[in-house]
């Protein structure tokens, strides 16, 4: 089969070394996935709890309330942390990424609507949690976010398989109903044996990291079971939280490796980020970025410290309220009438 035409990128340059951009892409994507995991975990946890208990105890209410209180912050953080990997992926693989985006353009744009709905559902769930139908909103949250994950996964898979682009070019992006089943079949990725062997050969750091990640997954089963059986021993809880958190790094490295292997195929244009990109590092902006990243994290840490070092005071008492006038003021209509504006 002749190679698929890949959009030209030869006039561009990389403003940093590929290894650095890949490392930043993996690191920021890891942070993003952690927050997405927190959202999905918390909402599914809340759904299950809510469907299970008939009459919530005070403890139930407190726990639900504390989880719900963190949700808006988690969603905001997940979105913001998602921006950085999106940036690095565009600079490394933009010509593949954009093409895949365009082929699933309506779905890609629909993910914004899902995001907005998910975000609004978080707030509505928080407001209506103790009402009978409050659970509906919290059910909507994982539904929306999983839909986004599904669309993004499709995009990622399509981007590394240009051999399927022509199918999309033939009409799927115009949403012809008879072609819809093709879309549903995606992501149709079955990793070729040679790539899998390459990954599992320990010949690359990604391969080693992947093996460690798989080991973590197996260990996690053990620690999780222990955590359930011995809830008083917090070490199991800590371990079963940390193992997947760090195991995810190995999986993301393996993902990068697979992407490279896929794009290196002749049918995909034989793309190699180390060989094909010209690097013109923008040193000063890069240094400023690094310094500001550290400074930014320190500032966030400082603000969190400010909050933690002060104990929460009692909710605002009635004594604080008299600053303001009563709800309706007799002089209000007169005042408005006298307003020349």
């Amino acid at each position: 089969m002749n190679p698929v035409p890949i959009p030209d990128y030869s006039s561009f340059f990389l403003p940093a070394w590929p290894w650095l951009l890949m490392a930043l892409s993996t690191f920021t994507f890891w942070l993003h996935l952690l927050m997405v995991g927190v959202i999905l975990g918390c909402t599914i946890f809340l759904c299950v709890r809510r469907l299970r208990y008939k009459t919530p105890t005070d403890l139930d209410r407190q726990l639900d309330s504390r989880i719900l209180k963190t949700m808006p912050v988690s969603v905001s953080l997940a979105i913001t942390l998602g921006i950085a990997p999106l940036l690095f992926i565009q600079v490394l693989y933009g010509h593949y990424f954009y093409t895949a985006n365009i082929f699933i353009a309506w779905f890609w744009m629909a993910s914004l609507a899902f995001l907005l709905l998910g975000f609004v559902a978080v707030y509505l769930a928080k407001l209506t949690w103790h009402q009978r139908w409050g659970v509906l909103f919290i059910l909507l949250v994982p539904l929306m976010f999983v839909s986004i994950v599904y669309i993004f996964t499709n995009n990622a898979v399509l981007a590394i398989q240009p051999e399927h682009w022509l199918e999309f070019q033939r009409g799927l992006r115009h949403l012809h109903v008879h072609d819809a089943e093709n879309y549903i079949l995606l992501p149709r990725i079955s990793i070729p044996a040679d790539m899998l062997r390459h990954l599992a050969s320990f010949s690359t750091p990604a391969g080693v990291a992947w093996m460690i990640a798989l080991l973590f997954v197996v260990l996690n089963l053990f620690t999780a079971v222990n955590g359930i059986l011995k809830p008083q021993e917090t070490k199991w809880l800590v371990l079963s939280t940390l193992l997947p958190v760090f195991g995810m790094i190995g999986m993301l490295m393996a993902r990068q490796q697979l992407r490279s292997d896929y794009l290196a195929r002749e049918v995909a244009g034989g793309f190699d980020i180390y060989r094909d990109w010209t690097v013109q590092p923008q040193i000063l902006p890069m240094i400023i970025f690094a310094v500001l990243l550290v400074a930014g994290l320190l500032v966030i840490g400082f603000m969190v410290y400010l909050v933690l070092k002060t104990r929460p005071s009692a909710p605002p008492s009635a004594a604080a309220e008299p600053v303001l006038a009563p709800v309706s003021t007799p002089s209000l209509p007169e005042h408005r009438d006298s307003n020349p504006s």
């Binding site: 340059f13 403003p15 600079v91 970025f289």
Partner: peptide, 16 residues
């Protein structure tokens, strides 16, 4: 994106 990668990345830190 290629020209201003670091400007966008710095803006991201400030947004965080």
């Amino acid at each position: 994106i290629h020209l201003f990668l670091w400007a966008w990345a710095i803006e991201w830190i400030f947004f965080l």
